[in-house]
Every structure is written in C-alpha cells, then in structure tokens.
Design a protein around this nucleic acid. Structure first.
Length: 944
RNA sequence: GCCGGAGUGGCGGAAUUGGCAGACGCGCGGGAUUCAAAAUCCCGUUAUGGCAACAUAGUGUGGGUUCGAGUCCCACCUCCGGCACCA
C-alpha cells in the first residue's frame, strides 16, 4: 500500500527542487556514497570494474559553460546505471590548471597564478557540485598540485632516460644503448649522431668496410655524450619555432593568427631557430597508427589521428648536380613520374641553396630566401594562392633520362617534410603545374589518364607514357619496378614518410612544470634523481617575461629572475650550473591524469601496480583495456589524445602500465550552440534585451526587429548561457534532463531556453504521480499510487525497463527520456500505479534525475540511498502480445490495417488482408501478382 | 582544394537500420477547472482540398535500384567540423 510519508499528513509535499537537491548532495557527501575503494582497501568488494572518465576542465575565470555538463551528465548517467548493475565504478574529476590565461592575468594584475587558479577551481567546483554528479571526490587532483606535477616530472625523466630501440620496437632504458655501443653491437652511422644496427653478424668487418660508420669506443667523452643525448626520447634540438619577442616566448601554431601575429596582443611573430626540448613522438608513428584500428573510438577521430600521423610510402631519389659533387635527395610518392620531372625545387631553408646558387643569381636568391624566412609557416600557406620562387642558376641531372633540369628555390616546398627538396612533375601535380605555368617551365606528360580526362594536371593513377622502357605499365607496378632499378643503381630507395614531427615540449613561461634538469657547461643536461623530485616552482613577484623589439634577442624566461633557485651546483661534476629555465607545455599534465586518479595520494609511486592492473586492465566490453569510457569534446581529437597515447606507450614499454592504450572507448559529445541576435546594424544584442513573444525576435529597448542565427557560444556574440541561472530557476535535475533530451549526445545542437519547462513539467508530473502535490491555494492533488494495480501498466513497465536499459547502454538518453515520458502519460491515463511499479520507475529515472528520485524513494519509506539498488529486471513473457496490428499496402501504398493473432501464419494474414473492406475495394477487378508478408511488420500486395 | 558529418512539421528531434514518416518535448489551437488568472488535466496540431469519412502530395535537389527508400546507389546544392602547398 501507499507509503506513510505520502498519505499521513494533511499536506502533500511539493516538489521543492532547491531543498531536495541540497539535501541529497549533502547526504551523498556525508555518507561517502560514491567513494570507490581500490583493490587492497579493507572495504573493497571484488566486482567487474568500469572506469568512466570526463575530460577534465581548464579552470578558467569564466567558469563552466553549458557544454561542460553535457558530457559530465552523460558519464554520470552511465556510472549510476553501472553501479545498479553491480560494477565497481571509477568516476573521478580534477583540473587541468597550468596554462597561459592565469599567467597572463598575473602579468597584467600582479596576482600570483596560483591564487587565480585556486579561486577559479573553487568557483568551477562549486558549479560542478550543483549538478549532483556522482564523482569520487576523494580522488580529486589538479595538475598544478606539487604532489601531482612531481610525477609529471618523473615521467619526463623516464622519457629522458630512455631511447627507442628499433630492434625491439619499444622504448628501453638509455643504459642498454650505452651497453650496445660499448660492446660494439651497435655502431654510429654516416651522420655521426645516429645509431645503426649491425649490417651483418660480423660488426667489425662492417665497420671496416663502411667508411661512414664509427665505433663508439673510438669517441672522446664529449662525443659519446652527444651521441647518447641525441638518442633520448626527450632531447634538446635547434628547431624552427614561432617566436614572439614582444611576449618573450615561443608560441604554438594555434596561438599564431593567419596574419602571422600573436593571438594575444597582436604582436609580430617570427620564425626563428631556437634550442628547445623535444619529445621523440615520431619514434612511435607506426604504433600510434596501427593501434588506432582496434580502438572503440568515433571513426572520424580515428581518421583524424591517421591523417595527422600522415604516413605515406614512396621513394627517395638522388639527383646529381651538374658540374658539382653535391647531390640532392628528394622524396616522392610518385617515382613513376620521374620521366616527367622537368625541374627541381629546394625549400628556402635547404642547406644546399647557398652552395649551388650561381653568382648571377645570388642576389635574387638571397632576397627571396630572406623574405621567406620572415614569414611564419601559417603566413606562407595563407598567401598560397600565388606561387613564388627564384631560379638558382644551377641544374640537376635526372637520373633516369640524364636530362639537365633547372633547380629553383620556392617556399611551396617545406623544409620540415621529406628532404626539403622535390622533383617537380608539373603535368601530374597540381602545385608543380601552377608553378610551371607561372614561370613558363616545360610540362611533359608521363601518365595516361582515363578516357575523356585531360592529362594536364591529372594527378590520379594511369598508364605510363613517355617513360622509355616502362611505357604501358600501370602506376603501381611502375613504382615498384623503377624503385628497384634505382636502388640497384644506388640512385634511390624505397622510403616512408610521416607528417607527424617531434613534439616541441618547452615554453618560456612561468606557470608550468619546471624541467627536472640542470644545465652544466661541462656535463650539459643533467637530470635530477627521481628521489630529488619534486622540483617546485620558485616563488616570484614579477611574472612578466623580458620583452624585446629585437627578433634575434635571446629568450629570457621568467624563471631566470630567481637567482637563488636557478644557480646550483652540477650533480655530476660539482661545478657551477644553472637549472633549466623553460617549463613544460599545458599538454604535459593532461597526458597522464587518468593514471593518477587511480591512486592519487601515493607518495612512493605514480600509481600502485596492482591498482593500475585492476582499473586499466581489459574487460569484456573493452578488450584493449584502459579507460572504459572517455567522453569529451571533439576539439581534442588529435593533439591531447595523440600525446596521451604516446606517453602511455612509453610507460607501457618501460613496464609501468599494463594496457597498450590509455582509452579503450572514446565518445565525443556534440557542441551546444545557441541563438545569437543582431540588430539591423549588425550589432549583437544580449538575451535580456530580446523579446521573443511575437513572431519575430524584437529588441526590447528599441523595438527594432532582430536577425537570429545559431552560433558557437561566445562573449562577443552575447549568446552565452550560464548554467547557474538555469539551475536556480528549474533545478539540476531539470537541467540534466534537458541537456540529455536535446538530441543525440554526439550531435551539435542549439540551446533553446524555451524548451526547458517541458522537462521541468515532466519531473513535476512524475512527482505528483508518486507523492501528490498541494499548490499555493491549498488545492491538493492526490498521488496516483494506491489506486490499484493495472496489468497494462505492468506490461508497459516491462517494455520500459528493457528500452531504458538498452538506451543507457547505447548512450541514447534522448529516447530513454521520451520512453519514460510516455510511461508517465500512460499512468495518468490509467489513473493508478502500484507502489512497486512506482519504485521500479524511479530506479529507471534515477541515473538521469537522481535528486528527485532519491527523495521520492525515501517518501516510499526507504531509508537508504537508491544508488546501489539492483537494476529492475524485465520478463520477456510480459513483452509478448496476443494480437498485432499490421498495415496492409497495395503496390507499396498504405490502404488498410488488420488485426491478427501474433502467431498467425502468412496464409492467415493474407486472408485477413484481402478480407479488409478497404483492401478488398482496392484489389477488386485487379490481378494479384505478388503477396509479401514481413513478419510483425507489414503486408504488401502487388496488383496489376 | 582534400577528408569527415549532417540536411525530416513553426522549432529541438524520433523512426528496431530497407517495411505504418513525424515518437517525445516545445510552440500553437480548443475544451475542463477557476469569480478571474497562473498552475493543472483532457483533446487536437505536416501541407493542400473537404463539414466529414477520405483523397493527393510530402524527409535538401535531380535521377536510379526495389514489391516497398528518410534509410541503398549515382550526380548536384547547402550547412557544420577538421586538414590545408605533406611532394
């Protein structure tokens, strides 16, 4: 019968969402409801595990926008559902709190970034907690915590102290490399800084015959150090960077505008070579590429990862230079077009430019190269419409037909890809074609396109022509044969290239992880001992970097001002030395936070191995292992996910983690956009000045008609929706439900505040159904429970249990809500509901709207939280129906409906169809040529 | 330019993947309740024609496959996201 709480008093409890939500949030907190013990803890119960992760937020001063809770709500539903299904659920939250905005605020206002960060975290955490998410807050972390970044530094040391062994195809301790070199198992190749594996069993013989290889033991100590340092996964190299002298720092490509200026402050940015820390992510190209296939990720993200790595296969071809000993190596994916190479192009930065340019051409080439150097890479591609270039006066010899072809310099060739030089085949490459037309260079056809396609500029595959003995070969076969032939002549070889480059890992900023490195003039980069970590950021008063108008002035990071921090003694030689002044980029902290959640307070290890094994191990749903569900925005489809995968694989190789991949399943929530309004002059108008009551939106203050569009939320468009306001007016449960009801989780959707009352009404109806209500005038609505048990409702409930469970599994929350709404509507029509039916309904709704369900659950005389109640079961037999209604089509057009027994035979169904009056009329004096019965779906009669 | 994704009522979106187009919600219309309003409850709501039963059209455009197409194929248009001289 009805629970005493609902029937006893004269007054019905109303749906006071504000009171209910704070009550239950306090209850969960006080009772540690969602604290999940680790294996090994006394209260740990061995059950299947589920690790559900949100992309942690950057704690910006603006706080949460409505896009954040979309993903957080989805994961929360999955977690609450999984607990009811009997899983141990790991669901943590933290903050990606290093980063530029807090530091920039410090520069401008003198407030320490740590203080800004703490304030912002406090605010954003307050906002997150309003939603009642079931996070295990005992695992909270921030990347700026010393206890956290100590281990970020530790992982950096792992990278520094490792090299990539191509034999084992994995990262190995650097000591193994030293052993191989000292024992002669490995030697040094032509470049002196790389290491080659032995060419044969007898290394000594190889060293003897190959003039270009060197024995490690023949080197002096400094040379040895250089060789070793050049193999580390973290290494220092001089690389081209976006250098902004006014801000005193390098900028990532994302921080540089199309005009080649800094995103912040609009200062000029220069391309410049600087010594920087690099991470050897390129060693992992093939594994990062191959392992993508098996991941349960959106196909679009997998494609983006593959494109970013950008593997291509082709050949390297060596072109001799006419009248010179120099040679030019080019990379091409189309060695089959070699006979059509009518000129060559060097990138402006190519080292041979100076050496081969003739005196006549020197002034023009020098001017061209200098102009190119001043442009950023983005700027170069921005004015890509017009090709530019300059003839060097030199000629190369095409190795296949021995023709003399001119060598040009042009900035459409990039130094960073391939060899920085190309053979140009204008007939079959769009860029070369444009260039050749502009500079009037010869265009020779060597590929026969399909019928009706112009050969000029044809870049597809075809049949070879004008290619000597290769004429008639299809492209693929030609590529193989000519590369083999070049290889035999020593003029070329098969080659593979990647777009992915090593990761520029240092920034000249204060608010980041300091490198655990000491620079000594004698011993160079000396790592700290892991036991000496953490290396804390020193206190500092003035956060401004040294700014300069001189683009060639040396960088001087803020840490350089802290004399008592930076001046140290070298741990190796005891001489005077200085700490590394660069800090790590913001990506560093987010590369491994999912691992620290597992064991956040561990002071002796980044994570206990047993705990790691339990949470990151494979499961039935996630055979690869790693996080079982990772939800976040698509903006991280490439960099964050690629960097994290890279670090994870290094840790995997070194035996620190058990899964080869960090995130088994990934899901991208769609972007929530919102309406933006503009007045007739095109000025954006904020929501408080927009009147939507009429047909057209109108500006309240002026009466002007406004134009409406759907845009990304942004301050400048005045269309940002603040979750605090919505929760204050309707409550967190309504907010959660609304965001889940808007549409598919992965679709981009427009926020429409006018739709929110619909979800709020649904919750009120659910409330009245179970608890009744009394309005301000004292009008009492009795609850529907207690009126008796309706068997049709029971059947509906079993269908609902099945549907909602399936939808939760598939993250289809919008249709789950629709089904729950239909059920409530059906109960209102039926007019009664049994208590046990109400209870099961509440358990179904609880993952999405937990506060109201907890309160109604307690009104139904339950003392404990419903969070760990078993998920309701459904009975297949209850889903079966006696009769079904089938539509009957004539020639594919709906003409009637019949009702038949669920187990009716096809013959019976056809008979019943023909007996239907409307159908009978339609087929009268027609000949039936086909009768189609689709079981449980429909009937189609084809007539003539 | 290349690679993804998407176009369905006034609006957000459903449609067991080839089988009753428009579930559910918003908005709108009507009714009940109310002195009245709000709230609530019930009914209706793709368009056109018709009092109606019903008929015809209909899922971005044009073609095609099929007994049957929102769903599959071909060509195109528009919007969103990503990459962008990658040789």
């Amino acid at each position: 019968m009805i629970a005493s709480g609902a029937s006893a008093g004269a007054t019905m409890p109303g749906y006071d969402f504000g009171a209910i939500e704070s009550k239950w949030q306090k209850y969960w907190d006080d009772n540690r409801t969602f604290v999940q013990p680790n294996p090994g803890a006394p209260d740990f119960v061995d059950k299947p595990k589920l690790y559900v992760l949100d992309m942690f937020p950057y704690p910006s001063g603006a706080g949460l926008h409505v896009g954040h809770p979309e993903g957080y709500t989805a994961t929360d539903i999955v977690c609450r559902y999984a607990r009811m299904k009997g899983y141990n659920v790991l669901h943590p939250m933290g903050y990606d709190s290093f980063g530029l905005p807090a530091e920039q605020y410090a520069v401008e206002h003198g407030v320490h970034p740590a203080r800004t960060t703490d304030d912002n975290i406090a605010n954003i955490e307050r906002q997150i907690k309003m939603f009642g998410f079931s996070y295990d807050w005992s695992r909270r972390l921030a990347t700026t915590d010393v206890k956290y970044y100590r281990w970020t530094q530790w992982i950096f040391l792992q990278l520094f102290n490792s090299w990539y062994n191509p034999e084992t195809n994995s990262a190995r301790p650097i000591g193994e490399l030293v052993d191989y070199l000292e024992s002669g198992q490995l030697v040094l190749d032509f470049f002196g800084n790389a290491v080659t594996p032995p060419y044969g069993e007898d290394v000594a013989a190889v060293v003897g015959t190959q003039a270009d290889t060197v024995r490690f033991t023949d080197l002096d100590d400094d040379q040895k150090r250089q060789v070793i340092d050049a193999q580390r996964l973290a290494y220092v190299d001089e690389v081209p960077v976006n250098w902004c002298p006014a801000l005193g720092t390098v900028l990532s490509n994302e921080e540089v505008t199309n005009e080649g200026r800094s995103d912040r402050g609009d200062h000029p940015v220069f391309r410049r070579n600087l010594k920087q820390w690099m991470l050897r992510i390129t060693a992992y190209c093939d594994r990062l590429l191959d392992d993508v296939d098996a991941l349960d990720w959106p196909e679009s993200v997998k494609i983006m990862q593959r494109n970013w790595i950008g593997k291509s296969q082709g050949a390297e071809v060596t072109f001799p230079i006419d009248g010179s000993d120099e040679i030019i190596d080019v990379y091409t994916t189309r060695p089959d077009t070699l006979f059509g190479a009518t000129y060559m192009v060097l990138a402006p930065e190519h080292p041979l430019v100076g050496a081969i340019t003739t005196d006549d051409c020197r002034p023009a080439v020098r001017d061209y190269v200098r102009a190119a150097a001043g442009k950023s890479e983005l700027e170069r591609t921005a004015d890509a419409k017009e090709k530019t270039g300059c003839f060097t006066g030199a000629y190369a010899i095409n190795p296949v037909n021995h023709e003399k072809i001119p060598i040009w310099v042009a900035d459409y060739v990039m130094m960073g890809y391939g060899t920085g030089a190309i053979m140009a085949v204008p007939a079959h490459d769009t860029r070369d074609f444009e260039f050749a037309r502009k500079f009037d260079l010869p265009i020779v056809q060597v590929v026969g396109p399909p019928e009706g396609v112009d050969w000029q500029g044809y870049v597809g595959e075809g049949t070879a022509i004008n290619s000597g003995k290769y004429d008639g070969l299809p492209t693929a076969e030609f590529k193989r044969q000519i590369t083999e032939s070049l290889e035999a002549d020593g003029a070329g070889r098969f080659a593979t290239n990647y777009k992915l480059r090593d990761w520029l890992f240092s920034r000249q900023r204060y608010w980041g992880e300091p490198f655990p490195i000491i620079n000594c003039s004698k011993c160079h980069s000396v790592p700290l001992n892991p036991g000496d970590l953490p290396l804390e950021l020193p206190e500092i008063d003035d956060f401004s970097p040294a700014v300069s108008d001189d683009p060639d002035a040396p960088p001087s990071p803020p840490l350089g001002k802290v004399a008592d921090w930076l001046n140290v003694l070298c741990p190796t030689c005891g001489g005077e030395a200085k700490r590394e002044l660069n800090t790590m980029p913001q990506w560093a902290g987010s590369c491994w936070y999912y691992l620290r959640y597992l064991d956040p307070d561990n002071d002796s290890d980044f994570c206990d191995p047993e705990i790691e094994k339990y949470w990151m191990g494979p499961s039935r749903e996630n055979p690869i292992g790693g996080v079982d569900l990772y939800i976040g925005g698509a903006e991280h489809a490439v960099l964050h996910l690629l960097y994290a995968r890279f670090w994870h694989k290094v840790l995997y190789d070194l035996g620190h983690v058990t899964s080869p991949e960090p995130f088994g399943k990934l899901f991208n929530q769609g972007m929530i956009r919102s309406f933006a309004y503009r007045d007739p002059r095109g000025v954006y108008v904020g929501y408080d000045d927009v009147d939507l009551s009429g047909d057209k939106p109108v500006q309240k203050s002026t009466g002007a008609e406004l134009s409406e569009s759907v845009e990304k939320m942004s301050k400048s468009l005045k269309n940002v929706v603040n979750p605090d306001d919505v929760i204050a007016e309707y409550g967190a449960d309504t907010f959660r439900l609304y965001e889940m009801f808007m549409g598919p989780l992965d679709a981009s959707k427009p926020w429409n505040t006018r739709d929110i009352p619909g979800m709020h009404r649904f919750l009120r109806r659910a409330w009245r159904m179970v608890a009744g209500d009394e309005d301000s005038d004292g009008n009492v609505t009795e609850p529907l429970i207690g009126g008796g048990r309706d068997e049709d409702i029971e059947r509906e409930l079993h269908k609902l249990i099945k549907k909602v469970g399936e939808d939760y599994d598939a993250l289809k929350f919008n249709t789950a809500i629709a089904a729950l709404t239909e059920f409530v509507n059906a109960v209102y029509r039926a007019g009664s509901l049994a208590v046990d039916q109400a209870e099961r309904f509440l358990l179904l709704l609880a993952p999405m709207a937990p506060h109201i369900c907890e309160e109604l659950w307690s009104i139904l005389a339950h003392e404990k939280t419903l969070a760990y109640e078993p998920w309701p079961a459904f009975d297949e037999a209850m889903l079966a129906v006696d009769t079904i209604e089938l539509p009957v089509q004539i020639n594919g057009k709906l003409r009637g409906r019949i009702t038949v027994d669920a187990d009716a035979t096809n013959d019976q169904i056809i008979q019943a169809s023909k007996a239907d009056p409307k159908v009978a009329a339609a087929i009268e004096d027609k000949e039936i040529i086909k009768e189609i019965v689709i079981p449980n779906r429909m009937v189609n009669l084809v007539v003539k």
